[in-house]
Design a protein around this nucleic acid. Structure first.
Lengths: 341, 341
DNA sequence: GATCTACAAGTAAGCGCTTTCTTTAAATCT
DNA sequence: AGATTTAAAGAAAGCGCTTACTTGTAGATC
C-alpha cells in the first residue's frame, strides 16, 4: 500500500519540468494555457506530460489558486423524478465548460441542508446552485453575500431577484384550468399542494385567473388543500368529491395528486377521461405510463438544469450573459381530459 | 469581491492557534481527535474555533495528509429510477461516517465513463463505487490495482470477486417464473433484455431452472430478446404474441418491458391480470402506479446502495467487515397475474 | 537527589501547485 | 552601435494544513 501510494503520487510538476527542461512555472503556464509560453516549450511540456502520465493534483492547484473549478449543487434528494433530470442536465453543461459538479442532498432536513452547503463551501466550489426547502430567505441571502455566484432554484427572493430561476407557476395554473374550461367544463375543482408553499399559491392564482377570464365565480368549495408528496391525498380527493358531486374536472397541482385522484375515481367507478377529467402538473416520467395517459402541465425541469448551470457559470466568469429567470410551463395534452358541451 | 474573498479566507489554523494560545500543531491535533491533547487545551481550541467561525480548508488538509475523506461514485446517469435510490442510500451511510460522496455519471459513453473516473481519481477520493456499463473487465481490474478501495456494482468479475456487489439474477428469474407456474400457467413466455448483458442471461437461466423444476420443456419460441430501456419493446411484444396465441403469461425481464407489454395487450383488447398475466423485474417506482398494479421482482437497489457504502468504507479502513456480495431479489405480488387452472 | 520515562506541546519541513517579482534575451528604435 | 522596450522564462514565496522530530516537564525509579 505504501509503495503503491508512492508510485501513484510520484509524478508531480517537478518531474515534468525536469523532463521538459523548463521551470515548473513554465509547465504550470503551459498547462493552464497562459499565452506567454513559446510554442516550442509548450510542445516539450505536453510531450513530457504524456510520457510520464502526469495528472495535476487538484488539491495543490486549488490551494494555490484559490479556485476549484467545480460547482456545487444542493438538491432535496438524490432520488426522485424531479431532481434526477435537474442534476443530469446541469451536469452536461458544466462538464462542457470543463468544470465539475458536486451534488449533495438536503434530505428534507434543515440541519442536513446546512451541512450540505457547509460541505460545498468547504470544497470551495466556485459557484453554488441551491434548491432549498428549509432554509429561510435570510439564510439564503447570507449565503449569497459570501458566495456571489449563487443560483437559487424554484424560489423567488426579491433581494436576490437575478439569482433566482423559477417557473411561472401562475401561468401553469392558468393554462391547466383554461384547458379544462375550453373543453366545456364549468365545475372545475382544484387540489392544491401545501398552501405554505408559494408554488401552491401561485398555481392557485392561475386557476383563479382562468376562472375570472371565463366569468366563472370562484367557489371555495371546489378548492381543497393536498400535498405535493404522496401522503394523504387519497383522503383529500374523497373529501372533495363528497363535497360536490357535480364536479366534472379536477386540476391537480401536481402529478402525484393526480395519481391519487385516479385511484379514488376508480374506487368510485368513475372512468377518468370519461366520467371525470383530470389534469396534473409537473409532467413527471410516470405520467405517461398511467392509463389513461395523464394530461398535465410540463415543468421545464430539464431547461431549469441547463439554465442554472449556464447562469452560475456566467456569474463565476462575470460575463454578462443574461439568463432566463422565469421559465415557461406548457400544456401536455394526453388522454385524461374529455371534451363536453 | 477582493475584500470579500479576503474575509472569507482569512481565518486559518494560525488565527485559531493564536487565539487559543497554543501551537498550530496542537490545534490540528485537537481538531482531528488525536489523543495526545490535554483536555484544557482542547477546550481552548474549540472555543477559539467557535469564536472565529473557523472551518478547515479541505484542500490544504488533503494536500498535506493525502487523504480526502470523500468517496467517489460513478453511476450510469444522475437521472432515473434505478440510480436515484442507489445514490440516495449510499449517501446516507457515507455521511454518517463523516465522509462525503461525490457522484458523477458515465452518461452511457465509454469516454465519459473514463473521464468520470479520472475526475474522481483527481479528487483523490479514498474509495470508489463504480457502476460501469462500458468499461471492460480488464480496465476495471486496472483501476482496482491503483485504488484498492473499489466496489463494483452489478457486475461480477472473478478476479475482483470480493469487490463486486451483485444481485442474484438467476434467483430472480426463477422466482418470477415459478410464481407464474404456481398460478397454473404452462405457456409462459419470456422477454429478455439485451442478451449482451449478463443480467439478461442470468435471468433467463432462472426462467429455465423454474421450467425444468416443473418438468416443462424449454421452448425457444416463447423467448424473445427485448431491451432494458424504452426502445422498440412494443414491436417485440407484438412479435411474441404473433408467434403463439396460447401464451397466458409473460415474464418481462424488467418493468420497462412490462410497460410495453401492457400497452400491446390493451392494443389487442387483452386485459392484463385477466386474459393474460404479466410479471416484471426491478420494481421501479412507477410499477405500482400503473393499472393493474404490476407484480414484479424487487431489485434491492436500496440495499445495494447501503451495502456498497459500507463495503467501500470497510475497504478504506481495512476493517474486516464482511459484506454481502450477492443480494437477494424477492417477489412483489400485486395485481397483474391471474391464477388459472 | 539524580536518572530515566512518558506524556504534551512546539518547531519546522514539507504536500504540489500558482503567481509575483526578477532576470535574461531578443527586438525595436534613435 | 547603444539605449530602450518587450517577450519569455526562472526563482522563490507562499496557499493552509499535517506530522516527524525535538524539546520541555513532571512523575516514577533507584
Amino acid at each position: 500500500m505504501d509503495i503503491i501510494a508512492k508510485v501513484i503520487t510520484l509524478i508531480t510538476i517537478k518531474e515534468v519540468s525536469e523532463l521538459a527542461q523548463v521551470s515548473q512555472a513554465t509547465v504550470s503556464r503551459a498547462i493552464n494555457g497562459h499565452a506567454t509560453v513559446k510554442e516550442a516549450n509548450k510542445i516539450k511540456v505536453f510531450e513530457a506530460i504524456e510520457k510520464l502520465g502526469y495528472t495535476p493534483n487538484t488539491f495543490a492547484k486549488a490551494l494555490a489558486s484559490k479556485r476549484s473549478d467545480s460547482i456545487g449543487m444542493m438538491v432535496g434528494t438524490l432520488d426522485g423524478p424531479f431532481f434526477g433530470p435537474l442534476m443530469h442536465n446541469a451536469e452536461g453543461i458544466i462538464r462542457d465548460k470543463n468544470r465539475h459538479l458536486i451534488v449533495t442532498s438536503g434530505q428534507e432536513s434543515k440541519t442536513k441542508e446546512q451541512d450540505s452547503i457547509q460541505f460545498l463551501q468547504s470544497k470551495q466550489v466556485d459557484g453554488l446552485i441551491i434548491h432549498s426547502d428549509r432554509l429561510s430567505d435570510d439564510e439564503l441571502i447570507k449565503i449569497a453575500e459570501k458566495k456571489p455566484a449563487l443560483i437559487i432554484l424554484n424560489r423567488y427572493i426579491p433581494e436576490l431577484s437575478d439569482h433566482c430561476i423559477c417557473i411561472d407557476n401562475e401561468l401553469g395554473g392558468y393554462l391547466a384550468t383554461k384547458y379544462l374550461l375550453d373543453n366545456g367544463h364549468t365545475k372545475v375543482a382544484c387540489i392544491t399542494g401545501q398552501m405554505s408553499k408559494v408554488d401552491s399559491r401561485e398555481r392557485l392564482q392561475g386557476y383563479r385567473n382562468a376562472l375570472t377570464e371565463s366569468s366563472i365565480p370562484y367557489d371555495a368549495n371546489l378548492v381543497i388543500e393536498g400535498r405535493f408528496d404522496h401522503q394523504g391525498n387519497h383522503e383529500v380527493v374523497r373529501r372533495l368529491l363528497d363535497r360536490d358531486n357535480e364536479i366534472t374536472a379536477i386540476f391537480c397541482q401536481n402529478d402525484n395528486i393526480a395519481l391519487a385522484a385516479y385511484d379514488v375515481c376508480s374506487e368510485r367507478q368513475l372512468t377518468v377521461g370519461e366520467d371525470i377529467s383530470i389534469i396534473g402538473f409537473d409532467n413527471v416520467n410516470y405520467s405517461q405510463h398511467i392509463r389513461p395517459k395523464l394530461s398535465t402541465v410540463n415543468f421545464p425541469v430539464k431547461e431549469m438544469g441547463i439554465e442554472a448551470a449556464r447562469a452560475v457559470i456566467a456569474l463565476i466568469e462575470k460575463t454578462d450573459h443574461r439568463f432566463t429567470t422565469k421559465l415557461l410551463p406548457e400544456l401536455i395534452i394526453r388522454d385524461s381530459v374529455k371534451k363536453i358541451n
